[in-house]
Design a protein around this nucleic acid. Sequence first.
DNA 1: CTAAATATAATAATCGATTTTACGACAACA
DNA 2: TGTTGTCGTAAAATCGATTATTATATTTAG
Lengths: 219, 219
Amino acid sequence: MDVPQRKQSATTASRVFDAMRHDLVNGRFTAGEKVAINGLKEQYQVGLSPLREALNRLAAYGLLVQENQRGFRVPRLDRRELDDVAGMRRELEGMALERAILNGDAEWESELLAAAHRLKRADLSPTKVDEWEQLHTRFHSTLVAPCGSVWLLRFIDQLHDQFDRYRRMAPGVPAVRKILDAQHGELVELALGRDVKAARALLEDHIERSYEVALGSCK
Amino acid sequence: MDVPQRKQSATTASRVFDAMRHDLVNGRFTAGEKVAINGLKEQYQVGLSPLREALNRLAAYGLLVQENQRGFRVPRLDRRELDDVAGMRRELEGMALERAILNGDAEWESELLAAAHRLKRADLSPTKVDEWEQLHTRFHSTLVAPCGSVWLLRFIDQLHDQFDRYRRMAPGVPAVRKILDAQHGELVELALGRDVKAARALLEDHIERSYEVALGSCK
DNA sequence: CTAAATATAATAATCGATTTTACGACAACA
DNA sequence: TGTTGTCGTAAAATCGATTATTATATTTAG
């Protein structure tokens, strides 16, 4: 038996898109810098056409800004932009969570418990941050998954990527991190208990606290 | 005095993106059809590279769907998709209108009046539909413009394009059209009167009625 | 006759090279 | 000194051709 190839016949452009998206969100690019296309060609070992196609997608997605005739730039870290992103996350994820709690079935409950458990067990040691981040993203997306709106989920993902770019640039705050981790468990409890109002309030508080940590990247 | 050239040195890819976005929203492509890249090359009189870059952006934007190794397709018209889009429009534009009414200044009031007036005066004769559509879009975007969130406006634009694709495919309903047109004026009144609740309720009703018209494209 | 296997045609994706545009240094002029 | 204009270089955008993949037609085995 052979493993079905990781992404069935992914195209070069898609692979570059995924890789760059990951690298942008995780702060591997300096905010505000101009993207050196020829440099990226070597960095990702690809040709110009698929690379440019990936850059175009990333710009449409909002992780790059495109200026006609003068290439692509990594967006600056801007306090007001972060305010906007965090505020929209509160609104949209709050809305999505309410709906998810109303719609979510037993299967969702199981997956949510599983996602929370995996996240709690994952360690946050410097070498495994990426893995932790992935589980964290997975947890939050599981939480709102059954909200019933594809577009809402799409917007939330997009905002999450924007937000994480700031958060990953910011210095960690262990004390707050501890609170945030605890809130993940509490969120699961409230969600399973179908306490719509309390769950939403907690999620909004969770985002608010994360926001305060993320602010550290704007100074 | 010379008119600053319409789009200062826009790139070929951007021009194609704009043109195709317009054509997709206005139903110049058959829903569900596979995009014949070589055909488009002739249709828009451009080479392959800028065309593909435009297609990639449109896919990231949601007006095309991209399937690795098998090109691009025009999304199908799907009843549930329309439900989702309309529902999200109600939520997000409602939210944006509330904020806009709280933030909007005198300049906004003027622009809103102007936009509403231009729309009312525009005729809807078959040859000038495009012009009317443009004024209509302009009106709705002016209405929510001072909501204070760039991301909210971005999502609203995106949803508007999605929605209009359905509406423009649907047969017109003159009786409803008349009501909708009247509502534009009422929206201005309520907005200028800073009646947040009533304005939001009316906007949501407005979207609901448009939705019922747009439904005609799914049968 | 049906279904799997193979060959063929169509088209998507990518590459390498060319053309076009912007940016910075320097010179000419006010 | 400050402004404007020109040139050279670097980079972005585009083109034309090639390669890889999928879809279609045809063959062949059961």
